[in-house]
């Protein structure tokens, strides 16, 4: 039994509210009939981007802690990841249900034979696995393997960026900004970089205390 009290820090509340903003905006546009010129493309794009941003935010928590010893952010990894899965699911549902109206022959042509779509599907499946195993129960059950499994978040981030790069025309820069952020987050996790950063921080702390 979970006897822990529900306590939210202001940071957590802000993270939850922030994560819901894209959904609120989309809901607002739908309820006010503000569909834009190509609504399906628009909603597909917005949910996809929200999923990607939240995935990168989830990945940014650990490096943020390494850099600034900001432990609170570690608690945000799971909600960011879960929200990312939520938006990715809506993204997928729009693609299958609205854009292709469940026409399986067309979906087969558009989804299963196109590399950008396959990569997107793979990202979604990873997020699904991570979502299912995100509970404390699964954490206990999988023990050491849980951490290994959840390193797949990085693979998901990489695939999501590749999905984006492969679907735009050459020279469109937006996905490359995400690729750059992902790369920085990767680098910050390299053991040597991590060590250098933490020793740098310690030295600064010592200097500050003198």
């Amino acid at each position: 039994m979970n006897t822990k009290k529900w306590e939210f820090t202001p940071l957590q509340i802000a993270a939850h509210l922030g994560s819901l903003i894209p959904a609120i905006l989309i809901g607002w546009d739908i309820s006010t009939g503000n569909f834009g010129i190509d609504p399906i493309r628009d909603f597909t794009f917005r949910t996809g981007k929200a999923a990607l941003v939240l995935l990168l935010l989830s990945l940014a928590c650990t490096p943020l802690n390494t850099l600034f010893k900001f432990k609170q952010v570690l608690k945000l990894r799971r909600p960011f990841g879960l929200y990312s899965f939520f938006y990715a699911s809506v993204h997928f549902a729009i693609f299958i249900g609205l854009d292709y109206a469940f026409k399986w022959n067309l979906i087969q042509d558009a989804l299963l034979e196109k590399r950008y779509a396959l990569v997107g599907l793979a990202t979604g499946l990873i997020l699904l696995a991570l979502t299912i195993t995100s509970t404390i129960g699964w954490q206990r059950r999988l023990k050491k393997n849980w951490k290994k499994l959840h390193k797949l978040t990085y693979v998901a981030g990489l695939l999501a960026v590749v999905h984006y790069i492969w679907l735009v025309k050459q020279g469109v820069l937006d996905p490359w900004y995400f690729a750059a952020i992902l790369l920085v987050l990767f680098i910050l996790r390299l053991p040597t970089i991590k060590k250098a950063l933490s020793s740098l921080r310690k030295r600064n702390l010592q200097r500050a205390s003198h």
């Binding site: 399906i40 854009d99 067309l106 042509d109 558009a110 034979e113 196109k114 950008y116 779509a117 679907l167």
Partner: peptide
């Protein structure tokens, strides 16, 4: 090479 041209929106 990267997406289908069978249909259009």
């Amino acid at each position: 090479p990267r997406w289908s041209q069978a249909t259009e929106r």
